[in-house]
């Protein structure tokens, strides 16, 4: 049974990861590359437009050393085989990991008497998206390179706790049978946001808010599509594999 769990999850994850990588390269990567030009100093938000008293800004633009590895032409985001290849590989790894977790959770639910059809897999995928992307994004929006941010370890701890609590809350909402369970679920889901995510003291990132907003919207949009597909693939393959 272990082999069936593993193979069905890995195939589902690889398929979803590949779709994620393609969508990322088409919709998300151009925004990210554009932002890196601000991060590296090739472009400057606002100061470049020659405000009368922005000498410091001008100085920064001309003095900034080109970061060197931006062979990719700006706005269009051409293909960089090594970099994009790694993105495809890691996208597959991430979604394979998620698929294994999802398959484990589905098998656990089935042990408790809930049969999971491929159609219900769509809902499992939606729940996964909420737990892993939407709930953390409520506190820490998907970050564009160059954005000001708090200490990375603190943010990772907050991210992990939020994901675990949100996943637990969704489980209780789906399988709880009374208000005691649902009440606990509401508290679990709300707690990380009431405490609040770690944010920087000063917002001094060089990237324009327009880009950051577009990046967050696109990252979440791609995440939603891929997670719903991941749920469908995972439940379909597992329901065949388990017999």
């Amino acid at each position: 049974m272990l082999a069936r769990l593993l193979t069905s999850a890995l195939i589902a994850g690889a398929a979803a990861g590949l779709i994620a990588a393609l969508m990322q390269l088409v919709f998300v990567q151009p925004v990210l590359l554009h932002a890196e030009l601000y991060e590296g100093g090739e472009l400057t938000h606002f100061a470049a437009e020659g405000g009368h008293d922005h000498d410091h800004g001008h100085g920064a633009v001309t003095d900034a050393a080109p970061s060197g590895d931006h062979a990719v032409p700006p706005e269009t985001g051409g293909i960089d085989p090594a970099r994009d290849g790694l993105s495809v590989l890691f996208s597959i790894l991430v979604y394979a990991g998620y698929a294994l977790l999802l398959t484990g959770a589905i098998a656990l639910a089935e042990n408790r008497g809930h049969r999971v059809t491929p159609r219900e897999g769509l809902l499992w995928g939606l729940a996964g998206f909420i737990a892993v992307q939407l709930a953390p994004a409520f506190g820490l929006a998907p970050e564009l390179p160059g954005m000001a941010a708090a200490d990375i370890t603190q943010r990772e701890i907050w991210w992990l706790v939020t994901v675990l609590l949100s996943a637990g809350a969704l489980w209780l909402i789906a399988f709880g049978r009374n208000w005691a369970a649902w009440g606990v679920a509401i508290v679990m889901a709300a707690l990380p946001h009431l405490i609040g995510a770690p944010h920087p003291v000063e917002l001094t990132g060089p990237t324009p808010p327009e880009l950051a907003a577009q990046f967050a919207g696109r990252a979440l949009g791609v995440g939603l599509v891929v997670w719903v597909l991941l749920g469908l693939f995972t439940a379909s393959l597992w329901s065949r594999a388990r017999g």
Partner: peptide
């Protein structure tokens, strides 16, 4: 470095 773009695009904290 290898996972950089995917981490950003999938909403992991990065940097």
């Amino acid at each position: 470095d290898a996972a950089h773009d995917v981490r950003h695009a999938t909403g992991f904290p990065c940097h």
